[in-house]
Amino acid sequence: MNVGKFITAAGFMALLAGSATAATIGYSSPNFDDNFQTILREAAKSYAEGKGDKLLVEDAREDVGTQLSQVQNFIASGVDAIVVAPVSTESTPAITKLAKQAGIPLVYVNRRPADLNTFDGKVTYVGSDNYQAGKLEGEAACKAAGGKGDAVILIGFLRNEDAQNRTKAVKDVLATDGCKNIKVLAEQEGEWQRTKAQDIVANWLSAGMKPSIVLANNDEMALGAVQAMKSAGISMKDVVIAGIDATPDAIKSIEAGDMDITVFQNAKSQATNSIDAALKIIGGEKVDKYIDVPFVPVTKENLNKFK
């Protein structure tokens, strides 16, 4: 008996067995240029590859049709599961239908799908309660402003349920007794983007508006507001700037004394939970329709925990 040949054959069979258990997962990101989505996407890719699986990543470029085509291509290529951070939460029923018809596990991540209540054990959503994020942001901003001032609100995409929930929560906080002396001067869609928000705030300032509070649906827009105000010669000590996500840039901005508040959205936990959920469904397990990753408010007082 040739032991060498036997070991080589055994090793080869083990290799085959290992590759058979590796999963291929399609991942559609709404926008590669979005800072938070980049953190989320890279964390998912790193985690999947660390487990020996393969993540095929595509950029939908904030286009619903492009994302739908990507899902169709994933299905046609025979992936084992699909993870989608939706461009528009209203477009998710069409994506869910495609995945169900193909019998492919589907995980939505970060942006709450409109058809969440219809999900079964093979379709799930991994994310955070965006109403809670807006509530935490509004409460912290109100406290920092002493319960009074003139505010502006920067909204992500009006079509996006996450943006809607964050905005509604902020407004609900401002309607409470302790915050009702904060007046909303204006609100506008900033598309989650720093440059867009900077232009909006610059235009407001040029028109003579003097907001003392900026409530942004995410950190990128809050950072855009900081840039616009600094360019206009406004001291950051005179305004309260609040965002959501606790991105590295936002943490640095709070440390520098520019931004005042953010709300930690755990991108890594959302990413790892989405991959784990996909792998569980592939393995025949049923998962909950919603897997929650809690938000945490971040200010100068607890900043060191998030560096």
Results as ranks from 00 to 15, higher is better:
28 S>C: 09
45 K>I: 11
81 A>S: 07
74 F>Y: 15
94 A>I: 01
52 G>H: 11
22 A>P: 09
44 A>Y: 13
93 P>R: 00
57 V>E: 12
44 A>K: 09
33 D>S: 07
57 V>R: 05
51 K>C: 12
63 D>K: 05
70 Q>E: 11
89 T>V: 00
81 A>T: 03
63 D>N: 12
64 V>D: 01
74 F>E: 09
61 R>M: 07
49 E>G: 13
48 A>W: 12
79 V>K: 14
78 G>P: 10
55 L>E: 06
60 A>T: 06
74 F>C: 09
60 A>P: 03
45 K>H: 12
92 T>L: 00
84 V>A: 02
25 I>H: 08
85 A>Y: 02
55 L>Y: 12
24 T>C: 13
40 L>R: 06
81 A>N: 11
76 A>H: 08
44 A>F: 11
57 V>K: 07
60 A>S: 08
86 P>I: 00
32 F>T: 01
30 P>N: 05
28 S>E: 04
41 R>F: 08
39 I>F: 07
34 D>M: 01
24 T>M: 14
33 D>V: 03
44 A>Q: 15
27 Y>H: 10
35 N>H: 12
78 G>V: 12
90 E>K: 02
51 K>M: 14
44 A>G: 11
37 Q>M: 11
55 L>D: 14
62 E>Y: 04
78 G>I: 10
52 G>R: 15
37 Q>F: 15
95 I>D: 02
44 A>L: 09
89 T>R: 01
31 N>D: 08
63 D>W: 02
87 V>S: 02
84 V>E: 02
33 D>F: 04
24 T>Y: 14
26 G>H: 02
50 G>F: 15
72 Q>M: 07
24 T>Q: 15
46 S>L: 09
89 T>G: 04
32 F>N: 05
26 G>Y: 08
22 A>M: 08
86 P>Y: 00
91 S>V: 00
90 E>W: 00
69 S>W: 04
22 A>Y: 11
73 N>P: 07
27 Y>Q: 04
27 Y>I: 06
45 K>Y: 10
59 D>G: 04
90 E>M: 01
95 I>Q: 03
43 A>Q: 08
67 Q>G: 02
61 R>A: 10
87 V>G: 01
72 Q>V: 05
69 S>C: 05
25 I>K: 08
67 Q>M: 05
27 Y>C: 05
87 V>T: 05
54 K>T: 14
76 A>P: 10
78 G>S: 07
32 F>R: 06
92 T>C: 00
60 A>G: 07
24 T>N: 15
32 F>Q: 06
53 D>R: 13
49 E>A: 15
57 V>D: 10
44 A>S: 15
28 S>D: 06
22 A>N: 12
70 Q>K: 10
39 I>N: 03
75 I>V: 14
71 V>S: 04
25 I>V: 12
54 K>N: 13
53 D>Q: 13
89 T>C: 00
59 D>T: 06
85 A>C: 03
54 K>D: 14
94 A>Y: 03
56 L>M: 15
31 N>W: 04
59 D>M: 05
28 S>N: 03
95 I>F: 01
73 N>R: 13
37 Q>W: 10
59 D>R: 04
88 S>V: 00
34 D>E: 08
71 V>P: 05
62 E>S: 09
51 K>Q: 15
47 Y>R: 10
35 N>G: 04
68 L>Q: 07
56 L>S: 12
